[in-house]
Design a protein around this nucleic acid. Structure first.
Length: 722
DNA sequence: TATCCTCGAGTTCC
DNA sequence: CTCGAGGATA
């Protein structure tokens, strides 16, 4: 496959405009035929490498003659896949992201919060490691009995892509480890040095291939090559800085563990230091910042971690980040450019979101042409950022604006140069009707966003709702992403979720024929129908989340699914509540008159706003009918099991009195990590009371209700089995 | 009632 | 990733 016929690259430069047009037509035809062969038969007529080479040639001609790009250009094909892509790997231990610090005060606050959580006094010794945060992409390497068995990208943190073959080509990644634990997952960053990046771009340019915007993209692009021989030719490097699953600890300190990784043969960062507190951490940060330009590779900050691993494990994790680490980021890069226009996007809930169309400008190594403008007040210079960053100046089309990438990702407007404001520039007039459906767009009292009132009449809302329905946390149908949903909607095939499940019956044969030219063949159509059928069995919480009811997110969907078991009982209770007067406050006798509301509000995490929203959705005839049509197609399963198999899973625990071996926050977090629910007061629903010294009324009440009660040691003994 | 924390919704670029 | 708002808590 590697010695596929090379397209004649020099010829592209020599191509006349006329011949370029003909060549694009030829490539469109050849690639379409290849796609068709790939999707409809099991025997592709081109190898992957040949296919890639032709596609690259096509892109190259399009880059040279942009106006010749065809409407059926192979570069825009939806279903066109050159190869199957990478397999998924589920991380044994999730790869989390880090909480960020932007100021010195944030670092002091980090230290303070940790001391508070652990119950340490201000003078107890607490040291941290500080190391540069490499701007690359994280990788997890799994070694069994000293041999590398697989390498996975971070992905969404829970599941990544299997890039083992590619990782093996990186010199810094050992194939074998001597003296390592039987099981060891090493985590670190794949990156590219500045010199290697420049050289690679020069080579790419000479070969007529695309160049990379920055070393990070070059590293990411190189690691995710389907052809490992390409990865091997790219100068990637690797720094190890953490670990996942282990059969035995590497050390009892963070620094010790890093040293151990170095002994095992990994590169570790030489600027890693031990700091005895916030002052030393900030000092090290300044030192690294001063060396930033001469390091030879990109970094975007400094990472601090609690050095003592026993303390790390006591601190544990918030939902997506560890409590024992933080990334201190360098100030964001800024760039000036012109604001060419303001467009309004309409979201799933009807929210009108203004987006800045910018004259393209490079910020932090990436070309930015859009930026979020949040909402009406933000443009007018009111609201949080408006006041503090740009002194309340309003944003006008034609302005010179300074942009930055918040958290190095989301482009935002930081400032405006009033001296360059065109005389004709007018304050932005925020639309009061939906730009998509002309329905009135209203702002409710105290609300920052203006919303289209069109509901499902509004095509934008309908499409966004469908995209949400097929999204990852909801139905997650393979092969049916945002692009496909949008296409099906415009074609009139799928107007609501139920239509996805009747697609085959209604358009099965039509789909196979009609879509042939657009990248769908019989094979991919069959795959899609199979993927859809696979999701007819769906967990109740995923269904609820997928419906796209306002304020009903992933967490609330789980809470409801846990309480109601099935659709019918939820619907019954919501219908009941709909017939009752809305509850204004929960402490009144009115509760007894509104059993529906009472039941819903009794669910932890469900408040009045969500109940209103549920009632609105269930009493809307159109929406209710569409729910019913959908349910006919589905086989709804109970809530997905959480961390089962712990002694306290699913139990409601209450802590009272003073705890001596851990703080309250710590106890709560540990209990929740084990699948328990922590409540504040004892009721009939309480399963277990943990009472420390000084327990008062709660212990008494628990005794009256006959609830099991443990002291702190008893609790620790119980959970330590887990 | 005020304060803290978590969740939901929206966004960009690769 | 960030902001705003909802919900829990003191």
């Amino acid at each position: 496959m590697t010695d596929a016929p090379k397209p004649n690259d020099t010829a592209v430069d020599a191509l006349s405009e006329k011949h370029a047009g003909q060549e694009l037509a030829r490539l469109a035809e050849v690639l379409a035929r290849a796609n068709d062969a790939y999707h409809t038969q099991d025997a592709p007529d081109l190898t992957d490498a040949e296919y890639d080479a032709l596609k690259r040639r096509n892109t190259k001609i399009e880059t040279r003659f942009p106006h010749l790009k065809r409407s059926d250009s192979p570069s825009d094909q939806v279903g066109a896949v050159a190869a199957a892509g990478f397999q998924k790997i589920t991380h044994a231990v999730a790869m989390l992201s880090l909480w960020n610090a932007f100021t010195d005060d944030d670092v002091v606050e980090f230290d303070r919060a940790i001391r508070k959580y652990l119950g340490l006094s201000a003078i107890t010794e607490l040291t941290y490691t500080a190391e540069p945060k490499i701007d690359g992409l994280s990788l997890s390497l799994r070694y069994e009995n000293g041999a590398l068995v697989h390498a996975a990208t971070r992905g969404d943190g829970a599941t990544g892509e299997n890039v083992t073959t590619n990782a093996r080509t990186i010199a810094d990644i050992p194939e074998e480890l001597a003296g390592a634990p039987d099981l060891l997952e090493v985590r670190g960053e794949v990156y590219m040095s500045h010199v290697d990046f420049e050289a690679l771009n020069t080579r790419q340019a000479e070969a007529g291939d695309k160049t990379f915007a920055n070393p990070r993209n070059a590293a990411a692009g190189s690691l995710r090559q389907l052809d490992a021989t390409i990865t091997a030719a790219r100068p990637l490097r690797f720094f190890a800085y953490a670990w996942g699953a282990l059969s035995q600890p590497l050390s009892d300190t963070q620094l010790g563990a890093i040293d151990r990784l170095a002994e095992l043969g990994f590169q570790t960062n030489p600027l890693t230091a031990l700091c005895d507190g916030p002052d030393a951490m900030v000092a090290h940060f300044r030192k690294i910042e001063a060396q930033r330009a001469t390091l030879g590779y990109d970094i975007d900050g400094v990472v601090y971690k609690v050095n003592d691993l026993a303390w790390q494990s006591r601190l544990g994790f918030r939902s997506t980040t560890p409590r024992w680490a933080i990334a201190h980021k360098f100030p964001a890069e800024l760039a000036w450019t012109r604001l060419d226009g303001i467009d309004i996007q309409v979201g799933r809930t009807g929210a009108l979101s203004p987006v800045a169309r910018l004259h393209p400008v490079t910020v932090g190594g990436v070309v930015v042409s859009n930026a979020t403008l949040h909402n009406e007040d933000y443009i007018a210079g009111r609201g949080a950022d408006g006041g503090t960053i740009r002194d309340g100046k309003d944003i006008r089309v034609g302005d010179w604006v300074q942009v930055y990438r918040a958290g190095d990702v989301i482009p935002k407007v930081a400032d405006i140069d009033l001296s360059k404001r065109p005389d004709a520039a007018q304050p932005y007039d925020f639309p009061e009707t939906c730009p998509q459906c002309d329905s009135p767009a209203v702002r409710e009292d105290g609300d920052a966003v203006r919303r289209c009132t069109g509901g499902l009449i509004c095509p934008a809302q309908a499409i966004e709702k469908l995209k949400h329905f097929v999204s990852r946390g909801a139905f997650d149908i393979e092969g049916l992403g945002a692009k496909q949903v949008e296409q099906f909607f415009t074609d009139g095939w799928v107007k609501e979720p139920a239509h996805i499940f009747t697609l085959n019956a209604r358009y099965g044969s039509g789909l196979q024929q009609l879509q042939n030219r657009e990248g769908w063949g019989q094979k991919s159509a069959n795959n899609l129908f199979q993927a859809i059928d696979d999701k007819r069995q769906i967990a109740f919480n995923r269904l609820l989340f997928g419906l796209g009811i306002r304020h009903l997110g992933e967490a609330a969907a789980k809470d409801l699914a846990r309480h109601f078991v099935d659709w019918a009982s939820l619907a019954q209770t919501v219908d009941l509540a709909a017939g009752e007067p809305a509850l204004k406050d929960t402490a009144k006798a009115a509760l007894d008159q509104s059993p529906g509301w009472q039941e819903l509000l009794s669910i932890d995490g469900v408040g009045r706003t969500l109940v209103h929203s549920l009632i609105a959705a269930f009493t809307n005839n159109e929406e209710r009918a569409s729910f019913d049509r959908l349910l006919k197609e589905l086989d709804v399963q109970p809530l997905e099991a959480a961390s089962a198999d712990t002694p306290v899973a699913g139990k409601t625990v209450v802590f009272t009195g003073s705890l001596e071996k851990m703080t309250r926050a710590e106890a709560k977090a540990r209990a929740e990590a084990l699948g328990a629910k922590v409540a504040g007061s004892v009721s009939a629903k309480t399963d277990l009371l943990v009472a420390g010294p000084g327990a008062g009324s709660k212990a008494k009440k628990a005794a009256e209700l006959g609830i099991e009660t443990l002291d702190e040691d008893g609790w620790l003994a119980l959970i330590n089995d887990a």
